[in-house]
Simulated scan of single mutants.
Amino acid sequence: MNHSKKPSLSFSLGANHLHAVLRVDQIRNDTLIQLVQHWADPDSRDEILDALDELAAVVQGIAREGELDAAIEQVEDVAGMDTAQIEVPTLDARRLHDELSAVNRVLDRFNPQRRVPAPREGGAAA
């Protein structure tokens, strides 16, 4: 359950209390708005549809390394999408810091020495 004063931009614990959850609704909203802004142009619409069809094929199949990222970038390019980031005002930054600190206190009870797991194959840590 998210107890944040601003759930649309917040940190909370995952349901099993073994991970943090970052919620940033503004990024999703901006993404959809940017997509439909270019969708209104008939010339862009065909390019966007082609890129979305390609992305759907990659998602539904077995993607080769880098294929999913390339398909997403293609959608972003033809739809003129900005980087997935938002500005966080000082008060929200402090609130997010407090929320993440509270989440980390719970997560650290299972990892008091804050040990980092070995990287997985492919380079990402667990």
Rank of each mutant, 00 (worst) to 15 (best):
V24Q: 11
S101D: 12
H19C: 02
D53E: 04
R120V: 06
V58G: 13
P7V: 07
S44I: 02
D98W: 03
P117V: 07
Q113S: 13
A124H: 14
I27K: 08
D98N: 11
Q74S: 05
E76Y: 04
N104P: 02
H97W: 06
E54C: 03
R28Q: 14
D53W: 03
D50R: 14
R95N: 07
I62S: 15
L22T: 01
I27C: 05
L91D: 10
G122E: 11
R28T: 12
H97E: 11
G66M: 02
E87K: 12
A124K: 15
H97A: 10
D46K: 14
R114L: 13
P119D: 12
S101G: 06
E54Y: 04
H19Y: 07
R28K: 15
D25E: 15
L107S: 02
Q74T: 06
I86T: 05
I62Q: 15
D25F: 01
L22Y: 04
I48F: 04
D53I: 02
D77A: 07
V21G: 02
G80D: 09
V58N: 08
E99V: 06
N2C: 15
L9K: 12
F11K: 13
I86M: 05
G61I: 08
A63C: 05
L9V: 12
A79P: 01
L22K: 10
H38C: 06
A70R: 06
E47N: 14
V78H: 04
L68R: 09
G122H: 12
L22V: 03
D30E: 15
S10E: 11
L32H: 10
I86A: 05
S44A: 10
V59H: 05
L13A: 09
A71Y: 05
R64W: 04
N16P: 00
R23E: 08
D41Y: 03
G122D: 12
H97V: 02
L107Y: 01
A84Q: 13
H97Q: 13
V21A: 01
E54F: 02
Q37H: 06
H17L: 09
V24H: 02
F110P: 00
I62E: 15
R94T: 03
E54V: 01
S101F: 02
S4W: 09
E65K: 09
V36C: 11
R114H: 14
D77C: 00
K5T: 13
E87T: 13
L52R: 09
D77S: 10
Q60G: 12
F11P: 04
D25V: 10
P7E: 11
V88R: 08
Q60K: 14
N2Q: 15
V106L: 00
V106H: 02
E73A: 00
R45F: 03
N104I: 11
D25Q: 14
